[in-house]
Every structure is written in C-alpha cells, then in structure tokens.
Amino acid sequence: MTRPHIHTIHHQPISTQHYGWDNSLPPQLRAAPGDTLDFAIQDASGGQINEHSTAADVLNFDFSRTNPVNGPVYIEGAEPGDVLSVEVLDFQESPGSGSSSAWGWTGILPGFGLLAADFPNPWLHISRYDREKVVFTPEITLPTRPFTGTIGLAPAEPGLHSVVPPRRVGGNLDIHDLTRGAKLYLPVEVPGALFSVGDTHACQGDGEVCGTAVETAMNVQLKFGLLKGANYSAPRFELPGSSVATVGSKGYYATTGLGPDLYVAAQDAIRAMIDHLGREYRLDAPLAYALCSVAVDLKISEIVDAPNWVVSAYLPRGIFG
C-alpha cells in the first residue's frame, strides 16, 4: 500500500532570489502537489528604490538587479507535458520605515515603456497603501489589488534567459487579475517544473503602459497542484467572481486608437488619455502617464474589420476624490 502524501504548509518564507530563467539552477526547496508555500518577495528594483528615493535613483538603475524572482522550487512528480496549477491564496504588504502603511513606487525608466520616445527623462513617484486602498495622490485613490507580475517555470532551452519578456512557461506576465483567489496554469518543460515568483504589485492597469505598476515588496502564499499530461500550449487562468474589483461605480471615460497596428493604436489611445488627464484633472504629463500604467485598462475593442483595429483605454472615474 502506498502511503498518501500529507500536504504541507511551509511556514518559512522562501527568500532566495535569482535573476533570469535557467533550468540548471539548483532548487531551493522540494514540494509536492497540494503543498502551500510562502514567498518573501522583494520589489522589482531589487531594493534599489526606497520610499525616500528620487528620479536620480531611476537614472542610475542597475538593470542586472531588476525583477529578482524567488526560487526555484522543485515540484515532485512534475514532468514535461504536465501542467502546474498555482492557486493564489493571500498577500501581506510590507510597511515602510516608521509608518503603519506600506509604500510602492511607479517610475518612468528612460528607453522603457509604451511611450518611451515621448518620455525620455527619468521620473519617480511614491504611493502609500494598505490592504484596501492605494493613495496615489491625495486626490487619487485606487483599490489595492495585489498580484505577482512575474510567475513561471524554467524553460527547456538551456542557458540563462532574461526575466523581462513573458514566455510559454509564464514569466513576466503582468496579468493584474492574478490576485487572491485566482488559479494559474503553467506548462511544464523540465522535470520538477522549477517554479519561481517575484515582482509583486499593489495595483496595475491592464497594459502597465509606462513599464511599472505600484511596485512593492510583499509576502505571498501559493498552493500548488499538478495536471498530468495536460499539454497546454501557453498559460491559462481562472478567476472567482469576487476577484474583480468594482472600480467602475462612477463610470468610465475612454479614449481610442485606430489603425492596422495594435501596438501603435495602443500608443495613440494612451496619448489621448494623457491629454484628457491634463485637460480635465490638470495632471502633468509624467504623472498622467504613470496613472495610465496603474489604473487605466487597455482593451482590444475590435480586431475583425480590416484594415483597421480599435484599442480602447478605460479610465475609471471613481478613483478621483
């Protein structure tokens, strides 16, 4: 008779980090399907930004230290062709020094972001947040909706791979719906799956257009499962109904971009939204761009009426006090 596995809750947080995906990295822990793990995640700057930082710190950013991920974790029984399920259980924010509230940063990094050519100068903004709300400015409050921007498995291809682009096995997905109660499914390409996670955010708009959300350190608890032989071609996820934040009670204002190129259309929609935020709310351009990154949702409204497609940018009016 085979003795059944007793599911384990690992209370010691996993804090060991690595930079980039590499299937030759030794696992920091071995876990089994059904186990719950706790990860102590650093912000995406790798500690280079603190709550007292300025734009000069963004200018001197060391990109080799960005987006550290915690792990890897070896999942017993996981083989290529299987699918690892990752259930998001909870988050705990990291309070700032001398403050009961947590903090996060949003930055414009030269050469990075949807409108990099429009915003060539470094810029940094610090927000305060708790479990319920993010105070972006005294006049702008967003719902706290934490998630892990980078979450994935080691690829089969050998060598070190950048953590920046998303991949078939996950990685820097930046899907803001992967909050409490969500379940993510990741294709396994190597024995043990070799799972890692990082890049926690307090909130983000769909698109993360300036390249950063409200970046912050957090602890996150995840529960693992395994679908044998499922052979998914790319990540999938499911959400409980309660995971969708109700930020639209006061309606939305939307701008659009149209044309044969979705990327250019997205740029045009965000440029129009920055113009609206400047005219209607007197926000300067960098602050408006950052607000688009943390609160505005990009949507593909139409992609069948050739030769032009439509991208819409949705601003929830309820974030303004």
Rank of each mutant, 00 (worst) to 15 (best):
N172V: 07
S99C: 11
K183H: 03
P122L: 02
S162L: 13
L142T: 08
P110L: 04
E93G: 14
V86S: 04
R180D: 13
V86P: 03
A102R: 06
E79L: 15
P146G: 09
V188A: 06
S97A: 14
S100G: 03
T141N: 12
E139A: 14
P122N: 00
Y74C: 11
G111T: 05
G171M: 05
D90R: 11
P80N: 03
V169D: 01
E132T: 11
T137K: 07
L173M: 15
P122G: 01
D82T: 09
V134C: 06
L173T: 14
E189A: 09
G104I: 04
F91G: 03
G107C: 14
G77I: 12
L114E: 01
A117D: 15
W103P: 01
S127M: 07
P95E: 04
G96C: 04
L160Q: 13
E87P: 00
Y74A: 07
L160N: 14
W123N: 01
L186P: 14
V163E: 10
R167Q: 14
L109C: 01
A117Q: 13
L115W: 01
L114A: 01
L178F: 12
K183I: 15
S101N: 13
S101H: 13
Y74R: 12
G181Q: 09
Y185F: 15
I126V: 11
L109P: 00
